[in-house]
Write a protein that binds this DNA or RNA. Structure first.
Lengths: 195, 195
DNA sequence: TAATCAGCGTGATAAATGTCACTTTTGTCA
DNA sequence: TGACAAAAGTGACATTTATCACGCTGATTA
């Protein structure tokens, strides 16, 4: 069950065999079925979740009822509402399983304990946050500077597993465009590609 | 010179007096005059910069020559191109002083040394990255879900010092809209407020 | 197997935002 | 202080994207 997590940690820092065993004791395994929620708007985010299997998304719902996807998380990724997790404030995000999923959860106080028990985990999480920030900044910059079509093109050639596992209307929601616009962009692309 | 940095660090972690002195030795003071660059597109980002005084921005320039501002950094903030700094790859960002500025710079290898010398700095940077990620995610979510007017309103009531120190066309560029659109939004707001 | 639903496509139209050209205002500094 | 540059405003128009309404298809399930 914890293989992916260990692997993931060992890619960033080195752990002794004891530490690796110790690490596992901090996590609670949890299964979610498709369409179940790990977190709903208004709740406090109790857990940070590492995805061993499956695919999840975090999203907000605006006044008109439209969903806006902040993040997808598949095998080897973390998902949580950092702000709510850390501050104890209610969350504005929903976290939902898009496929049956197996997670490893850690609660906030256990997370702090973990950093005490294995100080090098501080480094692991720093690197994790750093990579996440780099990726999020890049996505923001793209959203600030690129039209819908280029956003889509950039997505499909940087990260091909997402478009394969995720329905189009959710890709649209991730890019911040409507499903209709995405559908038209794809039509245009396929016709201009045929020439 | 290093007062703000010490203060900033001590807000997140506790340091002994020796550590605090030691900390200072890792940084190079640097002054920039308005419109000077800390980093230009194509260069490798050598430094992470802590702002003691002044105001800087990081931005990209697209094919049409339009600028898109990723970040402002004022007193007590960090600015850098994390990806380039960490990977040694050329940067796509420009970092420019918008006001005369005083910075504390740290090079990558010295940064690694610092983390060795004062392990609790690992925690400091983790918390820094975490807060930065939370803010960037929030900004991305806003950009995905809100129209121009609401983006602007949200900016002026969350962070009032930026609009005061930054010309409007750069606010527009930060929000990902044109200066004309922002100008019209402001006109509308002022007329509807008068009623 | 019929019924329902999620996902995708598409046409007509509306709304938001961008572009371009120009003017006015404000700020800077020689 | 005068001259120049930068910033901001504005009108006309173009483009992009959203909205709404509807149809089609394939999967799920009652």
């Amino acid at each position: 069950m914890h293989e992916l997590l260990s692997l993931n940690v060992r890619q960033k820092i080195s752990l002794s065999t004891q530490e690796e065993e110790l690490l596992k004791t901090f996590f609670i395994p949890k299964k979610l079925r498709k369409k179940q929620f790990l977190l709903q708007e208004g709740e406090v985010c109790q857990y940070a979740a590492f995805v061993e299997k499956g695919l999840l998304r975090s999203y907000t719902v605006d006044k008109k009822g439209n969903e806006h996807i902040l993040q997808f998380a598949m095998e080897g990724w973390w998902i949580s509402d950092l702000f709510s997790f850390y501050s104890g404030e209610p969350s504005v995000y929903m976290i939902e399983a898009m496929e049956d999923a197996e997670l490893l959860l850690i609660k906030k106080d256990r997370y702090e304990d973990l950093l005490q028990a294995i100080p090098s985990m501080e480094r692991y999480f720093r690197l994790l946050l750093q990579n996440n920030l780099i990726a999020t900044q890049r996505r923001l910059n793209d959203k600030l500077s690129l039209p819908a079509e280029e956003l889509y093109l950039k997505l499909i050639d940087t990260c091909d597993s997402i478009p394969q596992r995720v329905p189009q209307h959710m890709i649209a929601s991730f890019l911040g465009i409507t499903r209709e616009t995405l559908s038209r962009i794809r039509k245009q692309l396929s016709s201009s590609h045929k020439k």
